[in-house]
Computed example of a mutant assay.
Amino acid sequence: MKENEIELLRLIEKNANLEVEKIAKLMGKSIEEVRELLNQLEEKKAILGYSTLIDWAKVLDGEEVTAMVDVKVTPARGVGFDKVAERIYRFPEVKAVYLMSGAYDLSVSVKGKTMTEIGNFISEKLSTLDSVLSTTTHFVLKRYKHDGIILHDDDDDDKRIVVSP
């Protein structure tokens, strides 16, 4: 990948809301060059989408519940874990699926309105798949940082406890 492409990707990874004019200025390129580069990267599927990180706890009365589910599976002959992962990521409750090293094969991020809703998804849909051997569910209790962005850092006061002899 070219240096210009990597520079552009790093800029929009930090802030997908950057205007083309600002990107052009930061890169020392023309607006047309930046637009063309963006189009090329989108066509190559290097840019898969643009997203915004929202702190839903500040917007909604009841925040969605997130669970990280460790899944042990039997890989399919000839295709390994890919077919199993594809079957799992097609569920609308599933937000992310990762192949992992360690005791479990897949890490699955699931969102729902309640813990019960997530529990029902796991017991009725996920764990009933033929290739799923076991699951372990971890519910997210609080988010501190996501995608490099610190959440809930509203005031910069020093909160260390004063220790004196």
Rank of each mutant, 00 (worst) to 15 (best):
M1E: 09
M1R: 06
M1Y: 12
K2Q: 11
E3H: 10
E5G: 07
E5V: 01
E7H: 13
E7L: 09
L8F: 09
L11I: 03
L11S: 01
K14L: 10
K14E: 11
K14T: 04
N15S: 09
N15G: 02
A16M: 06
A16K: 07
A16Q: 06
N17A: 13
N17K: 12
L18H: 01
E19R: 14
E19G: 10
V20K: 09
E21S: 13
E21C: 03
I23T: 01
I23F: 00
A24H: 06
A24T: 04
G28I: 02
G28E: 13
K29T: 05
K29C: 04
S30I: 00
E33T: 13
E33R: 14
E33L: 03
R35H: 12
L37Q: 09
L41Y: 06
L41W: 05
K44S: 06
K44Q: 08
K45L: 11
K45N: 10
K45P: 00
I47F: 05
G49R: 02
L53M: 10
I54Y: 10
D55F: 04
A57P: 03
A57T: 14
V59Q: 03
D61L: 07
E63F: 05
E63R: 13
E64D: 10
E64G: 11
E64S: 11
V65M: 07
D70E: 14
D70H: 09
V71Q: 02
K72Q: 11
V73A: 08
T74E: 15
T74F: 12
A76E: 12
A76K: 12
R77W: 15
R77A: 09
G80P: 03
F81K: 05
A85F: 00
P92T: 05
E93N: 12
V94M: 07
V94F: 00
K95W: 01
A96P: 00
V97N: 00
M100Q: 15
S101G: 14
G102V: 05
L106A: 04
S107F: 12
V108E: 05
S109A: 15
S109M: 14
G112C: 09
G112S: 07
G112L: 09
G112A: 10
T114F: 02
T114H: 05
T114Q: 04
T114L: 04
M115P: 04
T116V: 10
E117R: 13
G119I: 00
F121K: 10
F121H: 08
F121N: 09
S123Y: 02
S123Q: 11
L129D: 06
D130A: 08
S131W: 00
S131C: 04
V132H: 01
T135F: 00
F139V: 09
F139S: 04
V140A: 15
V140T: 14
R143L: 06
R143G: 04
Y144Q: 06
H146D: 06
G148Y: 12
I150V: 15
I150N: 10
L151F: 10
D153V: 01
D153R: 02
D155E: 11
D158Y: 06
D158W: 05
D158E: 11
D158P: 14
R160E: 15
I161N: 11
